[in-house]
């Protein structure tokens, strides 16, 4: 008997009798202003929120914030300028990237997380290997809580999907919070109309 068969047969024999699946209860009193809640939460977890009218403003902001010779990778078609990459690239070539700009699918007000899927990453190492990360989010794409978030994700197919909430962080040394453990040292969220 293989280990697979052995495990499965022991599990079948030992699992207790029928227990029904519960319904998921949605919070009764969600914030009336999820937009404000989102901004407050992102800031609270070490992110920075910048309100923008559109892509040209984002371009200007990034140019000013990360002057030459910073390596800025742009994965958004609508955003003018910066370096674009071919999809199948070796992720090791991104070790010197200063900042990557990506489109976030939607944000979650209760925890400041932004959902990203690999189709917006172009290369799935980029959100983690870049020194800084900039995510562009439309103002109307914010949901209240995680239950709503998973309703929105639904049965979507992806290779990699991730919630990113703030910059990479650690408090492993005496509980002192340090931003930029292994991944981006800062997270900028551009909220556009």
């Amino acid at each position: 008997m293989t280990s697979r068969e052995k495990i499965l047969s022991a599990v079948r024999q030992n699992q207790p009798g029928e227990i029904p699946m519960p319904d998921i209860h949605y919070p009764d009193n969600v914030s009336s202003n999820i937009f404000e809640q989102f901004v407050k939460t992102v800031t609270g977890i070490g992110g920075e929120v910048i309100h923008c009218s559109g892509y040209p403003e984002i371009q200007q902001h990034l140019q000013k914030r990360f002057p030459e010779p910073a390596r800025i990778i742009n994965t958004i078609n609508e955003l003018p300028g910066f370096e674009t990459i071919a999809e199948p690239s070796d992720p090791h070539t991104f070790s010197n990237v200063s900042v990557t700009v990506m489109l976030g699918n939607f944000g979650v007000a209760e925890n400041g997380a932004i959902w990203l899927t690999e189709e917006h990453m172009l290369n799935s190492a980029l959100p983690y290997i870049s020194e800084h990360l900039a995510l562009v989010l439309h103002r109307n794409s914010i949901v209240s809580h995680l239950h709503e978030a998973y309703d929105r994700i639904g049965h979507a197919d992806y290779r990699l999907g991730t919630f990113i909430a703030g910059p990479s962080k650690t408090a492993d040394i005496e509980q002192s919070l340090v931003l930029g453990a292994h991944g981006p040292k800062s997270l900028i969220v551009f909220l556009v109309n």
Partner: peptide, 27 residues
Amino acid sequence: NHLGVFLRLLARSATGQPITTYSSHFK
């Protein structure tokens, strides 16, 4: 969609954060 329930609980119970920085779904 059960992840909605568990990810709301996990980091809050662990460190008091509303969610961990990265919750990566490898498919």
